[in-house]
């Protein structure tokens, strides 16, 4: 690095020397300026190339995790990952996107492991051979949130389908993620079960993450399907209330899937397996259970999701 700078100075010194012989007035000053600027730029470049090179050097201990906004924006991963990173000497790079996009980047082999919540899509992901196996990590539930005065009169309804039918029937404003996320997939399933195809002026698609969608629903006094963790994390600034909850249909299960080494040879299987082992370990499960915001717990450990079909082994076909 120092050598590079010295070489540069020598080169520019030669240039300056050659020019001084021409003895043109003001010329030297102009050249001096150009020279200084160039040298600054060069030093910057060399320094930064070093940064990038160093950066590439220890990438073997970097694990890429694509996950949903509900696990990241609530702060859960910042709560459970540092201990794992420290013990295993692994750096986890978290890319926080919707479930649909997380699976898309995983299919391309751009991440090593995904933590998502869309059971059908997850099983398909493993069946197609993109994921090696799937483990349940945790669960909570979806709720329908809405304005406190509940203009549709669905508060306390136990059956989600009936509530949705009433919302559609009365054309009450409803905000959908509309982004192929896990929550959006769930919402589509719930609508499909009612036989109603939601469309019209009352059905708004935000196309954004959960927190932004909640903001839209809040501003518009609309109803919205939301996972409980995101609802609690944002509840301080929202006027929305929990309107419908408790239907078994609203169970929200999170699964972790390492990307298959056979399909995408570039993935770091060892590191991904280590992360899965950590996530399902009793110690981490306890941390997940105890994680709380605004005095409320956000997730339940995997054992709470046992009614769900359990784990998937990719090689068991």
């Amino acid at each position: 690095m120092t050598l590079g700078v010295m070489v540069l100075w020598r080169r520019f010194g030669f240039l300056a020397g050659a020019l001084s012989r021409d003895n043109q007035d003001g010329f030297m000053k102009a050249m001096e300026f150009t020279e200084k600027t160039l040298v600054t730029v060069m030093i910057g470049l060399i320094a930064l190339c070093t940064v990038h090179a160093a950066d590439a050097g220890d990438r073997s201990r970097v694990l890429r995790l694509a996950t949903t906004t509900s696990t990241y924006e609530t702060g859960l991963l910042d709560h459970i990952l540092p201990l794992f990173e420290q013990r295993q000497n692994i750096k986890v790079h978290v890319i926080s996107v919707g479930t649909g996009k997380a699976m898309a980047v995983a299919r391309a082999g751009d991440v090593d492991v995904i933590l998502v919540h869309a059971r059908q899509a997850e099983d398909q992901f493993v069946r197609e051979g993109y994921g090696s196996y799937r483990r349940t990590v945790m669960a909570n539930d979806f709720i329908i949130a809405g304005p406190a005065d509940d203009p549709a009169g669905v508060k306390g309804m136990r059956e989600t389908g009936a509530a949705l039918r009433r919302l559609a029937g009365g054309q009450h404003l409803f905000v959908s993620r509309g982004d192929d996320s896990g929550t959006h997939k769930k919402e589509s399933q719930l609508w499909a079960a009612t036989g109603i195809r939601p469309q019209g002026k009352w059905y708004l698609e935000s196309g954004q993450g959960m927190s932004s969608t909640l903001t839209v629903a809040d501003e518009k006094n609309a109803y919205v399907l939301v996972d409980r963790a995101s609802y609690i994390a944002n509840s301080k600034r929202l006027r929305l209330h929990v309107i419908v909850e408790g239907d078994p249909e609203l169970l929200n299960v999170y699964g972790v899937i390492p990307v298959s080494h056979e399909r995408r040879p570039s993935v770091k299987t060892m590191l991904a397996d280590a992360l899965v082992d950590w996530l399902v370990s009793p110690e981490c499960q306890k941390m997940i259970e105890e994680f709380a915001l605004e005095g409320e717990r956000l997730f339940k450990p995997a054992s709470a999701a046992e009614t769900d079909a359990g784990d998937t082994d990719g090689h068991a076909e």
């Binding site: 940064v51 990038h52 950066d55 590439a56 990438r59 890429r64 790079h93 890319i95 980047v105 391309a108 082999g109 751009d110 991440v111 995408r264 570039s266």
Partner: peptide, 20 residues
């Protein structure tokens, strides 16, 4: 830069170099 792409083998996606 995606693994599916022309320069995918470089593994540059989601790095500072890709941003540059």
């Amino acid at each position: 830069l995606s693994r599916n792409g022309l320069f995918g083998s470089l593994g540059l996606l989601y790095t500072r170099t890709a941003m540059v």
